[in-house]
Simulated assay, not measured.
Amino acid sequence: MSDREAERIEFLKGAGLADARRDPLPGDASTRRYERLTTPTGASLMLMDQAPAAESPPCDPAWTPQQRRAAGWNATARLSAGRIEAFAAVSNLFRGAGLSTPEIIAVDAGSGFAVIEDFGDDLFARVIEDGEPAAPLYLAAVEALAKLHLNAVMPDVLSGPGGDWPLLTYDAVALQGGADLFVQWMPKLNPALDFGAAALAEWDAAWAPIAAMGEAKAWSVAHRDYHAENLIWLPQRSGDRRVGMIDFQDAVLAHPSWDLHSLLQDARRDVAPELEAVALDHYFACMPGVDREPFLADYAALAALNEARILGVFARLIARDGKPRYRAFMPRMWRHLEANLQKPGMEAVRGWFARHVPVEVRT
């Protein structure tokens, strides 16, 4: 028995769940693991397991950009390193805004364990595949975002049953760092790409105003990984509470478009352009104070940055981590990126890709 397994058993014993049946769930691209717990009475819960030592440290709010970069990727990008206290504190924030997140039954943040409510397996992506009409689910997800943008009370420090957690801004350092994954990892996946010092300087200059805009307009909380594989359909609930949210521990203050383009320009599944347009219309109807034209310009620019980031993440997963299945998602990301590069205001980034990334490798 591993030391970690012994810790799991001890935590479950302390939570009164020593007799629960444990069924591991398939892993994803993270270092977290989950088990479904079934109690002797038939109740179903989830064990979340995130060993704190499995990740580089999260960002200390006092760190400079140089200190963040030296500390590693989580500090640079302002990721939570999967910390349980982040999950619990963000869950409190979202529930306070009237949204559906799993109830936390037991927690030991220092050891990296929590037992949470089991929302079941009805991910948006799966129920749509099984024949549920997509539009009502996506419109409910948009309504949930609007409620979050309108109702979340956002202090500098969030509180939860696992302890306090800072609510940091998704700033220019984090945004630029995300975009930089493209130039760092795509050449390792495709040796035909070779970005020299001049190309890298051009890259930084092209994205700098977009990253600065993202920081300057970061006024709402963002789930940050808001898509059909992280939303669970809860039809027994009403309104936007039918949208069960998971995997939100990396929440930050960000531009309000961030979760929208994550949802509507999904890396893992196609969202029809007509549905994207209807969903955006619905967001503006829910948020009448938002100026549509500049918002959509920001939406396209930050979506393009995110798509460059995701292409870099997928390249890293394939080239470094030996996970070739992520290659199947890359053509979709290229299509989204290509479309956003054609929008007004994207001339500098579009020119960079025209000079440095041949069309034939954009697959």
Rank of each mutant, 00 (worst) to 15 (best):
H261V: 12
Q184L: 12
R32Y: 08
E103T: 05
L17H: 04
L47P: 00
L145A: 04
G131K: 09
D19W: 08
E129P: 00
Y226A: 04
G110H: 09
R4F: 06
I116C: 14
A106Y: 13
E35V: 02
L189T: 06
D259V: 08
F195K: 05
S2H: 14
G312P: 03
G239S: 08
R69P: 01
P235D: 12
L93T: 01
P187D: 11
G163W: 05
A172N: 04
G16V: 12
P58S: 13
R36N: 06
R21E: 15
V271C: 14
P235I: 10
A125Y: 01
A304P: 10
R237V: 13
G177A: 09
A267K: 00
R78V: 07
K343V: 14
G120Y: 01
E276Q: 05
L137Y: 05
V361E: 03
R335G: 03
L305A: 14
D28C: 06
D321A: 15
P273E: 10
A192Y: 12
G196I: 01
L148E: 11
P24E: 04
D122I: 09
A89W: 08
I246N: 02
E215T: 05
G82Q: 10
A20G: 04
W334S: 11
M154G: 03
R320E: 15
V271E: 07
E85K: 06
N340R: 07
T31L: 15
D171K: 01
G120Q: 09
L45S: 05
K343N: 13
I104L: 10
I84K: 10
L12G: 04
L296V: 10
A29N: 09
L296W: 00
E5I: 02
I104H: 03
G96H: 01
R269H: 04
L253E: 08
L341Y: 00
R327W: 04
M346G: 07
D156T: 01
P288H: 04
A201I: 05
P294K: 07
L337D: 08
P161H: 06
A20V: 05
L263H: 15
P191S: 11
G162Q: 09
Q66V: 07
H356T: 00
I246K: 01
S159R: 14
D298Y: 01
A70M: 09
A144G: 09
E274A: 13
A303I: 11
A54C: 04
R33M: 03
V290M: 15
V361L: 07
M287N: 13
L158N: 08
T64D: 03
D122Q: 14
D156S: 03
P294M: 11
T363Q: 10
A109Y: 00
G112E: 11
A201Y: 00
P294G: 10
A114D: 06
E307F: 14
R32I: 03
E229A: 12
D281F: 06
A216F: 10
D194V: 07
D266N: 00
A77G: 15
E229T: 05
S257D: 02
A179H: 00
F124E: 00
A197E: 15
R95H: 13
A192C: 11
A141D: 10
I105A: 03
E215S: 08
M48T: 07
F182R: 11
E55N: 14
R362V: 04
V357A: 10
P57Q: 02
D28N: 08
A315M: 07
Y170P: 11
L231C: 11
G312H: 13
D121C: 12
A70W: 04
V359G: 06
D23Q: 10
I9H: 10
W207S: 06
A53L: 03
